[in-house]
């Protein structure tokens, strides 16, 4: 990792590089620049999973004229591609280096593509087809499924963690804060909170699973969004984060585009 990133920094291809650094034995996201390039470490495989794309988005919004490099997993690459499509990041201002996920992480995520298109570090492991968690729920009766979801949704403490960590949640105005739709005086919020978010994940969710990891109530959000993705593929014939296919959720014309901006 140190040689490739060091070279990118030295040749001034990038102004900063977002990768990991070990601090007290743990992996943390770290922004490397020419000044601290000596702190770069050799690449090591890790299960550490951070909202790297979201960090990149925040960096790019703060410094629109700079070019950043980023170390990506399969899901992070999909997130960045989706952000390109929505006009939130510029293609020429992002340089990606890819790392493949370990088999354990791919299994845990039930990831359909646990590696980016270009793998610089690690060895790609085979993707997981289908999702056992979704299939288990499909087998239940409608009544049991409702009870199962209610037992999850009722634990929600409305911390907005799922939204705040989501790499593709970039809107400056959020429907989750709509007073009529999600009344602010209700705790736990009713089912509409999760269904509205699920509706907003259509054509955007790249299945990184950060929402579920960050959820303090351990709501199985990923299972819900995996089904959302399956429906999007079935109804709209679109897989978010794939290259070369325009998103059917973006209307042509500049007025309809969501403007980039800080939230």
């Amino acid at each position: 990792m140190n040689t490739k990133i060091g070279k990118l920094l030295e040749e001034a291809r990038v102004d900063g590089f977002l990768a990991y650094r070990t601090i007290h034995g743990f992996f943390f996201p770290y922004l490397f620049s020419r000044e601290n390039a000596r702190k770069l470490e050799p690449w090591k495989q890790t299960k550490a999973h951070y909202p790297m794309a979201k960090l990149l988005l925040a960096l790019a919004r703060g410094n629109p004229n700079r070019t950043y490099g980023i170390l990506v997993r399969g899901c992070e690459e999909r997130a960045i591609r989706e952000l390109f499509k929505w006009g939130q990041l510029e293609r020429e201002r992002v340089v990606m280096l890819g790392q493949a996920c370990p088999a354990e992480l791919a299994r845990h995520c039930e990831c359909w593509q646990p590696y980016p298109s270009q793998v610089d570090y690690g060895k790609p492991v085979p993707p997981v087809k289908g999702s056992k968690r979704v299939q288990d729920l499909e087998k239940m009766t409608a009544e049991n499924r409702l009870q199962w979801w209610l037992s999850h949704f009722n634990r929600c403490i409305r911390c907005f963690g799922c939204r705040d960590v989501c790499p593709v949640c970039f809107c400056t105005d959020c429907s989750m804060e709509h007073e009529k739709l999600i009344p602010s005086n209700k705790l736990p919020p009713d089912t509409s909170f999760h269904l509205v978010r699920a509706v907003h994940m259509t054509g955007r969710c790249i299945d990184c699973g950060l929402c579920e990891e960050v959820c303090p109530a351990r709501i199985h959000l990923r299972t819900l969004y995996k089904e959302v993705n399956r429906l999007v593929e079935e109804v709209f014939d679109y897989k978010p984060g794939t290259d070369g296919q325009n998103s059917p959720f973006i209307f042509p014309g500049e007025e309809a585009m969501l403007p980039p901006g800080p939230r």
Binding site: Q147, W149, H194, A198, L224, L231, E234, F236
Partner: peptide
């Protein structure tokens, strides 16, 4: 048409009729 088809699927998965 597409939106309704999606929403039906979502409601079904969440346990609503």
């Amino acid at each position: 048409m597409k939106r309704m088809k999606f929403l039906e699927g979502l409601l079904r998965f969440a346990g609503y009729e």
